[in-house]
Design a protein around this nucleic acid. Structure first.
Lengths: 169, 169
DNA sequence: TGACCAATATTGGTGGCGCCAACATAGCAG
DNA sequence: CTGCTATGTTGGCGCCACCAATATTGGTCA
């Protein structure tokens, strides 16, 4: 019994440890995945906000694709990054406004835009890489090196389930 | 050189296998997590749509919390499920309209609403459980039983990093 | 007691991200 | 030439996380 409060028992709900997750939910893989995702996106949002000049995940993915594959059409960028064509358009417009990419019509295929990474874009990508690296280590902080490798391996299997199917066939 | 096209080499981009993820991105934990999340949410959305009567993740979490802890205030529901208070309000309104929960003012604490799971709500929860179970097995399909246990353990560690911190201290 | 502060429920709004539909245009295949 | 497909763009939707402001209520404390 606690001090100085006679009516304690009419409190049907105030278990000291509500705030836990319901049992039905807390061990479900989809729940754990969503929690891990929530945690990583929170860190990403913070990192992008404080060191990302207002850029976000879309922008990083596009810059990375351009750095790796060189000048690319928007449609191919979308396929390479898993970003919808329409969202590619919007993100590229923002990147172009910042001078991080260059966009012009492909003279040989006039319906295409050829998107090119500018030097400033490459710089931005390198900066973001640093930010992202820090975030990765923060996310994986609770794990040992061996556990990290394991997790990445396992995640790759379930994350790439459809794509592997596409690739293999 | 391919046939019938002299100007082929000004085509820097048409690798036959674009559609992969940039190397800079594809092994990052946050990326893999987001892919796993995308996969699981796609399955969840499909499952909820075809067998969920239009309910979504929020609703399931709330029903599960109510089933486990009994009548609960909205604020506590929010804390228990990680759903923002404002979103709790909206989701409960929908659940109430379907007769799955009952919401009335706590006579002892008039600023609180006591939310109660109705029998229909318990039924809906059980139905959703079945749907969710199927989705879990679909998500984990590429893994062996041992790998599944491992993945869940590792995810729990990184997913619960903050909460554990809260609990431990 | 009265003044002040904290918690609650609600309303309304933001933003990221994934996705889809419609459209005009351009290239390709028959 | 006639479809059919690919491309880029615009506009919209839905889910989820989050935040701000407000009215109400409870509890605290000087």
């Amino acid at each position: 019994m606690r001090p100085t409060m006679g009516t304690l028992d009419r409190m049907p709900v105030h278990h000291d440890r509500i705030g836990r997750t319901p049992d039905r939910v807390k061990d479900r893989p989809t729940w754990l995945i969503s929690r891990a995702y929530a945690r990583s996106t929170a860190l990403l949002a913070e990192g992008f906000e404080t060191h990302g000049d207002g850029l976000r995940g879309h922008h990083y993915r596009l810059l990375a694709a351009l750095e790796q594959w060189g000048p690319t059409s928007q449609a191919d960028l979308g396929r390479a990054t898993g970003i919808d064509r329409s969202d590619v358009t919007g993100a590229l417009t923002e990147l172009e406004a910042r001078g991080l990419v260059d966009r012009k019509v492909d003279p040989a295929h006039k319906r295409r835009n050829v998107v090119t990474l500018t030097p400033a874009g490459a710089d931005a990508l390198r900066r973001l890489d640093g930010v992202l690296d820090d975030i990765q280590t923060a996310v994986l902080a609770p794990l040992t090196a061996a556990q990290r490798r394991q997790l990445l391996d396992l995640l790759a299997r379930i994350a790439g389930a459809d794509r592997d199917a596409d690739v293999i066939e």
